[in-house]
């Protein structure tokens, strides 16, 4: 059964469905999850190129058919971050084509997965539900999620920040002035997207829509707040080395960037770490381009939490009073994904 927007119809799949991993989570099952996300990107792009008549093919006297599909009913868990990335791919498809791939066999989807996608606003993108005029927060057990916000510039900054404040008040009972640090970091994330994510001279593998996406969730049981911010841009490992970097940054990179043969992605995390530590100044002035250091500092100001930045094939994690840890992975997140996690909120409220 295929949903295209709010229309439901029976379609035939010409190919066997592709089975996604059971758990789609960048923390718990990173490589499988990234493979799945990559497949999702490629399928949307490939079908767009191969078929200009729509996702569902129709010929007189024959059953409507699709070329194939990803069997979402086999997914048992999807994290908020992965759900946001998936939602962003569907929104890109909707913007570029005017429609999204149909959702298949929705009645068979795992309830937890369905709820997570519902929470972030996935079903509004695919046209099954209508987007309400105000941001919605949906609770499932101890977790409450703010539906995602997407924007091209700073005009949606207020919506994101007020949504997060209301989420925290709803969950923990009172506003926290320290959210100022996170709101400021989100403001910088948006400015970074405007300045760096979609350079005009970059040859994008997938057409981009010059946007960012953000969502947030709280967990009352463990007193946490998670904010996820994503763009489909060129990524830090591409844009950072092209900037006019100061001597200190170059010296730092010289020590940690490998010189041997290997994947072109092997040093991705090194560039993320440099950007988090020294900033991403285009001008060479040390005070300018402090966006990522400010994001890192926002975690220090809270004193408990974690900042994790995935960009292309690298990931860096920062916790207060600890060194940045970095690692590389097979696959790519298809842009830059920033996750702030703050712990112990219930204790303060």
């Amino acid at each position: 059964m295929a949903y295209s927007g709010d229309a439901l119809e029976t379609v035939v799949s010409r190919n066997r469905p592709t089975r996604p991993p059971a758990r789609i989570c960048l923390d718990e099952n990173r490589e499988e999850s990234l493979k799945f996300l990559k497949l999702l990107r490629f399928r949307q792009e490939r079908y767009r190129d191969a078929n200009h008549k729509g996702w569902i093919q129709r010929r007189p006297g024959r059953m409507p058919y699709i070329r194939g599909y990803l069997d979402f009913s086999k997914i048992e868990y999807v994290s908020t971050a992965a759900a946001l990335v998936m939602a962003s791919y569907y929104e890109r498809a909707r913007i570029l084509r005017g429609e999204t791939p149909p959702t298949i066999d929705l009645h068979l989807w795992n309830e937890t997965v369905f709820n997570t996608l519902l929470e972030v606003g996935f079903f509004e993108i695919v046209g099954i539900t209508k987007r309400p005029p105000e941001l919605v927060r949906i609770s499932a057990g101890a977790r409450t999620t703010m539906q995602f916000v997407s924007g091209q510039g700073p005009s949606e900054l207020r919506a994101v920040c007020e949504g997060i404040s209301e989420l925290v008040v709803d969950t923990f009972g009172s506003e926290m002035p320290e959210l100022m640090y996170l709101r400021s970091a989100i403001s910088e994330a948006i400015t970074n997207v405007q300045h760096h994510a979609y350079p005009a001279d970059h040859d994008f593998r997938f057409r981009h829509v010059d946007r960012w996406w953000a969502t947030a969730s709280t967990d009352k049981d463990n007193g946490s707040l998670k904010i996820v911010f994503y763009d489909q841009g060129a990524s830090i490992p591409i844009t950072y080395p092209r900037m006019s970097l100061g001597r200190e940054v170059l010296s730092f990179l010289d020590k940690i960037v490998s010189r041997g043969v290997g994947s072109e992605f092997r040093d991705d995390a090194a560039y993320i770490e440099a950007a988090m530590t020294y900033g991403n100044s285009k001008t060479g002035s040390p005070e300018r381009g402090e966006g990522l250091p400010q994001m890192k500092a926002s975690i220090d100001h809270f004193g408990r939490g974690r900042l994790r930045i995935y960009s292309r094939s690298g990931v860096c994690t920062y916790e207060p009073n600890q060194a940045i840890s970095r690692s590389a992975y097979a696959g790519t997140v298809g842009g830059t994904l920033i996750e702030w996690t703050i712990f112990g909120l219930g204790e303060q409220a």
Binding site: C161, S184, S187, E188, T191, E290, Q294
Partner: peptide, 15 residues
Amino acid sequence: GVQSLGSSFLEEAFG
């Protein structure tokens, strides 16, 4: 009353 103060805003204003 200010809700967010990004470094880009502050640097360009005061720097």
